[in-house]
Amino acid sequence: MRNRAATVIIREDKVALLKRNKGHGNYYVFAGGGIEYGETAEQAAIRETLEELGVHVELKKLLTTVPFNGTQYYFTAQIISGEFGTGNGEEFTKSSIEDGTYEAVWIPLTKISELDVRPLEVVKILMDNDSTD
């Protein structure tokens, strides 16, 4: 089990996601990854977002935690610099058939309930606009 941290970035009624294309199909995840030894969840969320999306973020608040193979921390965040879609983390440089591909995308909030966005617990929170302000 490994704790993870991720960011939920919303801009102009769209949410930043990573589109995963694996052998069994497509699904979407929030930018994030494992918390390294000596790192806080907040530090991991910021680092992983830079690696995966190519942007520096400022965390706003802890949106929720999800128990899944450890604890997953989801923070709302705002982009402060960088160029979206220029992530150069290991996911993009060591792609394999087993791992599939990753693509940074903006998805309208009105469409996320129609897609396979994981985890569903975060999607449900986002459908309630008041909780992400």
Rank of each mutant, 00 (worst) to 15 (best):
S95Q: 14
P67M: 06
T86W: 09
V8I: 15
R4C: 02
E58Y: 01
D130E: 15
D116N: 12
E39K: 09
Y37V: 06
E42V: 11
L17H: 05
G85F: 13
A77E: 03
T49N: 12
G25D: 03
D13H: 04
L126K: 10
M127G: 09
A16K: 01
M127F: 05
S95I: 13
F30C: 06
G89N: 07
E36R: 09
F30H: 02
L120N: 12
L109A: 07
L62V: 11
N88K: 14
P67C: 00
K61V: 01
L115A: 11
S113Y: 08
L18S: 02
P119T: 11
G70V: 09
F92E: 05
V29K: 15
G25Y: 06
K124L: 13
M1H: 13
T86N: 14
N69R: 13
V55M: 09
G100T: 05
V57C: 13
K19S: 05
I125M: 12
P108L: 07
A41P: 13
T40H: 08
I35L: 10
E83P: 00
G87Q: 07
T49I: 08
G70N: 04
Q43Y: 05
N69V: 00
W106D: 03
G87M: 06
G25P: 01
E90G: 03
F75M: 09
P119V: 07
I9T: 03
I112S: 10
G87I: 06
